[in-house]
Computed example of a mutant assay.
Amino acid sequence: MRRRRHRRDRRHSSTFRALAGTLALTAALSVTTGCKEMRIRVEDGSGKGAGHAAPAPSASLPATPAAPSSHAPAPKPPKPTHAAPKPVLAPGDRSGRVRELQARLRQLKHFDRNPTGYYGSVTAAAVTAFQRAQGLPRTGSADAATLSALRVRTQPPTRDELYPPTTRPVAAPDPRCLTGRVICISKKSDTLAWMVDGKVVSAMDVRFGSQYTPTREGAFGITFKSRHHVSTIYDTPMPYAMFFSGGQAIHYSSDFAARGYSGASHGCVNVRDKKKIAALFQQVKPGTKVVIYR
């Protein structure tokens, strides 16, 4: 009886120990699991796992602009511009004041023509040359300072200086032109002077033939005159023609009047002033001497 009870007690004691061990293991596992959950909650702060951490800021976001430096240099003010002197006389003008300007420039050898009263490219170039020599702004137009400097360095032009017979100065006459009535023509100055006993009665601009049809040089005489002549070779008008050597003549040329020295004749002596050649035509007679020289 005791042995049975003793064996039963031993079984109960063994069962109790086994149950106690199981309870102890369960408690230990519960405590370990609870610490792990606690650690997750503490690290994330939201109850979510570590794999759900907040994304890092994107690298493509614009950077905050830097504040402007207080030490940046201030912009430089624009340089002052000096307006060109206001012209008193300028290209395109036509007046007596332009004629005086040209005469004064000619006294200083800046203008190699006779005064015309027209302010063209030749006058502008002469004014520029004078301004350069005086250290003035080279504008080509005559302002007050330019005119003042010119008056100080020149004399008031005479009437002959202001109103010469041609636009080009007449060359010194050939010795053959100093006696009698002579049509004296200079290839050097491109001028014709009607001279009586060594004095110039009238003068005019002329042009000559080209290198292929040159105007002859030497002493000749007028052979015949033709008021309304037309060339039989070129079929062109030759008003107030005065022939002196074969088919070469002194005559008015509308082409010379229009184009100036950009053209040439076929050997004749062209005149561009119709009134002057008409007056000369009335005074010249057959046999009148003609001298053409360089």
Rank of each mutant, 00 (worst) to 15 (best):
V201Y: 09
I185F: 07
R181L: 14
R11L: 13
A126M: 03
S265D: 06
Q248F: 07
G45T: 03
G51E: 13
A203N: 00
A67Y: 11
K274G: 00
R99P: 00
V122W: 05
T213F: 07
T22S: 15
F111G: 00
V206D: 13
P91H: 04
L101D: 04
A74G: 09
V88W: 08
A90Y: 08
L108S: 06
H229A: 10
G198F: 09
K48H: 14
R94I: 08
A59N: 11
S46G: 15
L280P: 02
P137H: 03
Y163P: 01
D93R: 06
M204E: 14
M238D: 02
L29V: 14
L192T: 06
P165L: 12
A74E: 13
G198W: 10
S210P: 04
I183L: 13
A74D: 11
M38N: 10
G21A: 12
A56E: 14
S210N: 15
A144C: 01
P156S: 05
D235N: 15
T128R: 15
C177K: 03
I183R: 05
A129G: 04
S46F: 11
D205I: 03
L147M: 10
A193I: 07
H110V: 04
L19K: 14
V271R: 01
D112G: 05
W194N: 00
G180A: 09
A125H: 07
R106F: 03
K276I: 01
C177M: 06
K79I: 01
R176D: 15
T167I: 12
R138D: 12
S148D: 14
S265H: 01
P87Y: 11
T288M: 07
F243Y: 14
F256D: 01
R159S: 12
A24H: 12
H266V: 01
I292F: 04
M242W: 04
A53F: 12
